[in-house]
Simulated scan of single mutants.
Amino acid sequence: MPYRVGETALLVVVEAAEPVVGGWRRRFDRSAAAGVPAHVTVLVPFLDVARIDDGVLGELRQLFAAHRPFDVRFEGFGRFPDVLYLAPEPAGPVRALTEAVVARWPEVPPYGGAFAEVVPHLTVAHGQVEDVYREAEAALAGRLPLGASVHAVELWGSDGDRWRRRARFPLLAAR
Rank of each mutant, 00 (worst) to 15 (best):
H121R: 05
G92P: 01
W163L: 08
L97S: 03
G55N: 08
A148S: 12
S149N: 05
A65I: 12
E117M: 02
P170A: 13
R134S: 02
G160R: 14
G113C: 02
V102Q: 13
Q62F: 04
T41F: 05
F70I: 09
R143E: 11
V129D: 14
F77P: 03
V129P: 00
W105A: 05
E135Y: 03
V44P: 02
L63E: 13
D71K: 14
S149Y: 02
P120R: 02
E75T: 15
Q128V: 15
H67N: 03
D159K: 09
A114T: 08
A91G: 15
E107M: 12
E130K: 07
T41A: 10
P93E: 13
A33K: 03
Q62D: 15
E137N: 08
W105M: 05
R73W: 06
A50M: 08
L63N: 11
L172G: 06
T123S: 15
P37L: 01
G35K: 11
G92R: 15
A87I: 06
S149P: 00
E99K: 02
G78D: 08
A65P: 10
R134E: 14
F74P: 07
V118L: 05
V150A: 00
A167C: 01
E75Y: 00
L171W: 13
A50N: 11
R143Q: 14
R61Q: 07
A38E: 00
L86V: 11
A167T: 05
H121A: 01
H67L: 14
W105I: 12
R164V: 08
P88R: 08
F80M: 15
G142M: 11
G76A: 15
V118Y: 14
A138D: 13
